[in-house]
Design a binder for these strands. Structure first.
Lengths: 134, 134
DNA sequence: GGATGGTTAAATGGAAGTGTTTAAGTTCAT
DNA sequence: ATGAACTTAAACACTTCCATTTAACCATCC
């Protein structure tokens, strides 16, 4: 039975980094090149990102599919689409227009380009009015 | 750039499972054996567990090591150990006795057996008085 | 123009994870 | 005790991930 996602090496680097050490200093301590420290740190953070996304997905399991935001849609048009679908299902969304846009940018920044949606986005809705994107 | 930890197959199974389907039903739907569905579901949940642990670790990065709870310790004795160590460091823990025990049971249930601690537990403390276990 | 801190790409060997099958083993209610 | 739901172990081909090296590339600050 394994621990978390992070290898010992990755934890080591993250800990030293949090202490404020430079990549070169860490490289000297753990006996490798700074390029390697950079790579290790990068993949560590990548793993953390994936861990977050995984838990996000688990939340959507409690939620039901609401609608799809098509690629190319205007960001500012998104909240109204969501409000409309949600009220059709008798659920009050717990965000206002601005809140929804922020939630979207934070939740899946990689699907947003400036004012537009880059890829199709699946929207899920909770009974509590919580919104999830995928 | 990859998504979460879960493969499409794993998500598929988890979704169907949440809908209340049996492993056999899912096996028929996705065209494989029930044994395989079982394995897929198991490794999916394993992945979720690891995702949780990973984020837990990130929290401990902001915290400093406080003490070790030895294997075999009585659960009811744990809070006092923690309060004592914390006050020695001039930090007020943001939980009371009951709260701490609950936090422990929720955070690392696999290390707790009835009223006793099964394995050594590392305790970390935040400047905010937040407590993390590992 | 160096020095310092950071990032990137390509290549590699070894380790670990995934989906699958088959076959056997639970647990539990009817 | 029969069946339904579920778990487990072993084995296999495939794929992905990790740490590492080397060598090069930005950015910034004296």
């Amino acid at each position: 039975m394994k621990n978390g996602l992070l290898t010992d090496r990755q934890k080591e680097v993250l800990r030293h980094r949090r202490q404020g050490l430079t990549q070169q200093q860490i490289a000297d301590i753990i006996g490798t090149s700074k390029a390697n420290v950079c790579t290790i740190e990068k993949s560590a953070l990548e793993n953390v990102r994936r861990a977050r996304e995984t838990l996000q997905f688990m939340y959507t399991l409690d939620a039901r599919f609401l609608c799809t935001i098509p690629s190319g849609a205007d960001l500012l048009a998104v909240p109204d689409m969501i409000f409309q679908e949600a009220s059709a299902r008798g659920v009050k969304v717990r965000y206002d227009t601005i809140g929804l846009i922020n939630r979207l940018r934070e939740s899946i920044p990689e699907h947003v380009q400036a004012r537009f949606v880059k890829d199709d986005i699946q929207v899920y809705l909770n009974d509590d009015g919580e919104i999830y994107f995928e």
